[in-house]
Amino acid sequence: MTEPVLSTHALTKRFGALVANEAVSLDLRPGEVHALIGPNGAGKSTLVGQICGAIKPDEGRVQFLGRDVTEQSTRTRARSGLGRTFQISALAMEDSVLQNVVLGAMGAAGTVWHFLRPAMKDLTIRQKAEQALERVGLSDLASLRTGEISHGQRRRLEVAVALTLSPKAFVMDEPMAGLGAEGTRELTALLDELRQEAPILLVEHDMDVVFSLADRITVLNYGRVIATGSTAEIRSDPEVRRAYLGEES
C-alpha cells in the first residue's frame, strides 16, 4: 500500500467535559478523495482544526508528508503544502479577485516582505495566480472586487487560493456550502479533476456529492469514528444507516 500523504493517529480533543474527538485515526492516500461525514456536532470541524493547526490536540499525532507536524503552526503546515478552504469564504472582500490569488501565490513563494515594488507586477507570481483562476474558471472576473462576485464564484475562488500554494494535500471544509444545484455540479467536476494534483480530505454534508466523489468515507459520530471504508461499504453499514443516513437511504 502506498504511504498516506496525511494521517491522524488517535487524535483526542476535549473541551471541558465534552469529548469533541476521541482517538480519531484516518489517512489520506495519493490521488483519492476521502470524505469525512457525520451529523452536526460530530466533531468534524474540530478534527479539521487539528489537522490544519488551529486547534492543539490533547492526545495523538498528525502526520503530513511523512513528518510529525503535531507541534507545527498553521503557517508552517501551509508552507509545506497543506491547502485548505474554509466553510465560510475567507477572502479579502475589498480586494479584487486577482489580488486574492496573488496574495496566495505570494504567501507560498515567501515574497511578501517587499515594500516598494508593485505586487501585481511580479510576473512569476501573477502567472501562477492567473493559472489558478483559469483552473477554476474565474479568469473573466479577475478584475472584479471580490465583494461583487456571486457566492458560488467565491466558493471557486476559495479553491483557487488554495491552488496557488501548489498543495500536496487539500483540506476542504464544506466547499459546497450554500451552492445551488448548478454550482454544486460545477464544483464537483472541478474537485474530481483536482484529486490528480493532490488528494482531498473533504468535509461535506451533501450526500450526492460525497457518494459521487469519494473513494473512501469516514463517518464521525459523537467524536468517534464509527465506520470507515469504501463508498459501498459505508452505504451498507448498519450503524451508519442508523446514526446518520436515516432508514430511507
Partner: peptide, 9 residues
C-alpha cells in the same frame, strides 16, 4: 507592494 497587499488582507 506585496507587504501592503498582505497587510490589507
Amino acid at each position: 507592494a506585496p507587504f501592503g497587499l498582505a497587510l490589507n488582507a
